[in-house]
Amino acid sequence: MSTKTIPGTPSWLRGQNERTALTLLLEHGVLTRNRLGELSGLSKPTVGQIVSRLESVGLVEVVGEVSAGRGPNATSYGVRADRVLGVAIDIDKTTIRSTVVDAVGTERPVVETAIDADAGKTTSSAAADPAATDIRDAIGAACAAARANMEAVRVVSIGVQGSIDPRSDELSFIDTLPEWPRHGIRTHLESALGRQVHIDNDVNLAAIAERSEGVGAGSSSFALLWMGEGLGLATDLDGKVHRGAAGGAGEIGYLSVPQSAAAIDPEATDLQQLVGGEKVIEIARANGMTGSARDIVGALADHPARESVFAAIAPRVALGVIPVLAILDPELIVLGGPIGTAGGEFLADLVRTEIARTTPWHPGVTRSSVLEFPVLRGAREVLVHQVRQRLFSELG
């Protein structure tokens, strides 16, 4: 028979104190008992009891000693970061990237696995269940690189080049992963993997990273325009990404071009055709750049023709951004993705000037400052919170 805990009882107070101590250790890192007492306002005997309890359930451990002046050294404690883990995964057309995430945000290696373009799956995958095998392989590779226990992985966050409807658990707006099931994908993966699974649009996750550690941190609202092979948009309103009722908010490449775009590109019918990756490569080649699409994108940041290329791209980007300004009027437009970041502040300045010249809006325009693995960084931010909640649930 279970006993209901009533707020105000010793059991309830003990639980609250334990959560406070664990929160402080997560926020501040390694602490001594004295420092825990100072930060929490709890007495030394109470802190001692709490630390002993957290040690006994395996949530904290001794990590060293700190000099206490004339007296004996003080023992320092830290959270058992290996107790509960998550794995962040980013899947695009050619590569699956994965990394282990723990409750204290330790930086772990990022593993990249090539996707077999002909088979539509990773080169190591078995054919029986491509979706589960792809994710299981990614978890295993991340854990091997981090020397982490795969059994400790309780939750996975996956970024995909598409949208997932929270109501129907259905993948849509996605051209990659042809062998993955489109219906009930999260439920399928959770059942196959025995782990909690979170799936989100890759640009939404990049926007979460931009809010937590990039140029979006100080903005009341911002829109991240992702410019790569595809075109995507994520909008952060007061710290929350707007996903839409069916998860399809931000699929901006499907928007029809305005009539004014005919003066720039009379053949383009939607924004993907106007300023998507293929069009950017076409403009780059018209300006003398050579090589594969990947080579051209990789060279855009410092190629002699870059200014001419981005001068041609900027009016197209401005046309793509205007509908966002008209509907949401964000404080800041952030240019991200391989092409947006390659354009840097040069492209941002051109886009800002073009918007001001042709419309009444005057948003800030800048490039993303999360340049390395932005989708993984966003998935990591999601997982840190989820892993911490798992730790708190183990307090009982």
Rank of each mutant, 00 (worst) to 15 (best):
S2C: 13
P7M: 08
G8V: 08
G15T: 00
R19E: 06
L22S: 02
T23I: 07
T23N: 14
N34I: 14
L36K: 05
Q49N: 15
V51H: 13
S56D: 15
S67H: 14
G69W: 09
R70T: 12
T75F: 04
S76N: 02
L85E: 00
T94W: 13
T99V: 08
T106Q: 11
E107M: 12
E107N: 12
A117E: 14
A119L: 14
A119Y: 08
K121W: 07
A127N: 07
A128F: 09
A132G: 02
I135V: 13
R136V: 01
D137S: 00
G140F: 04
A144C: 04
A148S: 08
N149I: 03
N149A: 08
N149C: 04
M150C: 10
E151T: 11
V155E: 06
V156W: 06
R167P: 01
T176S: 12
L177Q: 08
E179K: 13
W180K: 09
Q196A: 14
V197D: 01
N204P: 05
R211T: 03
G214R: 06
G214A: 02
G214Q: 07
S219V: 06
A223Y: 00
L224S: 01
L224I: 07
G230A: 09
L231C: 07
L231Y: 03
G239V: 09
K240A: 15
H242S: 11
G247D: 00
G253P: 05
G253W: 11
Y254A: 15
V257I: 08
V257F: 03
S260N: 03
A261M: 09
P266H: 13
P266N: 11
A268I: 02
T269C: 02
Q272S: 12
V275I: 15
G276D: 09
I283W: 01
A284S: 11
G291Y: 02
S292G: 10
R294T: 12
V297F: 05
V297P: 00
A299H: 02
A299Q: 11
A305P: 02
A311P: 00
A311W: 01
A312V: 02
I313W: 06
A318R: 08
L319C: 02
I322C: 10
L325V: 05
A326C: 08
L328R: 06
D329Y: 04
P330T: 03
V334P: 01
T341R: 15
F346A: 14
D349M: 08
I355A: 01
W361E: 11
R367I: 10
R367H: 13
S369A: 14
V370M: 11
V370S: 02
V370T: 10
R377D: 00
A379G: 07
A379Y: 01
L383A: 06
R388W: 14
R390W: 14
